[in-house]
């Protein structure tokens, strides 16, 4: 189904949110709506040593997540109006004329991607910068990243280049929607779950609408 995907190098992402704001600028999004969100994951134990020093086993990393234009998009299935739909090129888009703002896609998407615009009474979401893609350009978030941690391309090409890893703690099992998101996990990510890691910047990623 889906043709295009994102590659995200979590090991290189600093959490600077340039991607988030570049996207907001392109899409004229007011505060509170984020097509791309940067989740900060962290977990640690801190202990004072006998010497009076501090020891820790911290793990911390960032996940920059937009819409993954899933190959099996649960949002599309959930949407009662077909406003949320898949284009022929696999890009999942919302038709604002059809959307009634029921927010059911927001429940169904395991990635928190659809965002509610209260002023317009409809959902909005990353459209993969489809106008740019059709123009032969890259999505804005990808070209914004100062760490060059984001890439965009045809799924087959990304898999060939980076392998087919679509999951990292605490993202959901990719079998649910088959996200077109290929991730290079941060080296610490393997320990995040056992350390009781969690998203610690919740107020910066939540849908406030």
């Amino acid at each position: 189904m889906s043709t295009f995907g994102f590659y995200f190098d979590s090991s290189a992402c600093s959490g600077c949110k340039t991607c988030q704001v570049a996207c907001k600028d392109k899409n004229d999004l007011q505060a509170g709506i984020r097509f791309r969100r940067v989740y900060e994951v962290a977990g640690a134990n801190w202990n004072k040593t006998d010497e009076g020093a501090w020891e820790h086993d911290i793990v911390a990393y960032n996940l920059s997540i937009a819409c993954n234009h899933c190959e099996n998009p649960s949002c599309v299935k959930a949407c009662p109006t077909t406003a949320m739909h898949s284009e022929l090129d696999g890009i999942i888009q919302i038709d604002p004329k059809k959307c009634v703002g029921c927010r059911y896609c927001q429940w169904a998407c395991p990635y928190g991607s659809p965002q509610y615009n209260r002023q317009k009474g409809i959902m909005q979401k990353c459209d993969f910068c489809r106008d740019y893609i059709l123009d032969g350009k890259q999505p804005v978030c990808v070209t914004s990243c100062p760490m060059r941690a984001l890439e965009f391309g045809p799924i087959s090409q990304l898999i060939e280049k980076y392998g087919d890893n679509r999951s990292v703690f605490p993202l959901p099992d990719p079998s649910i929607t088959k996200p077109a998101l290929f991730i290079k996990p941060h080296p610490g990510a393997a320990r995040a779950s056992e350390l009781g890691g969690s998203i610690i910047n919740r107020e910066e990623v939540k849908d406030e609408q």
């Binding site: 599309v76 299935k77 959930a78 949407c79 009662p80 109006t81 077909t82 406003a83 059809k98 009634v100 029921c102 059911y104």
Partner: peptide, 11 residues
């Protein structure tokens, strides 16, 4: 409009 996706949508 909300009746448009009976094939897939439980809503």
């Amino acid at each position: 409009k909300t009746l448009s996706n009976l094939n897939n949508s439980w809503l």
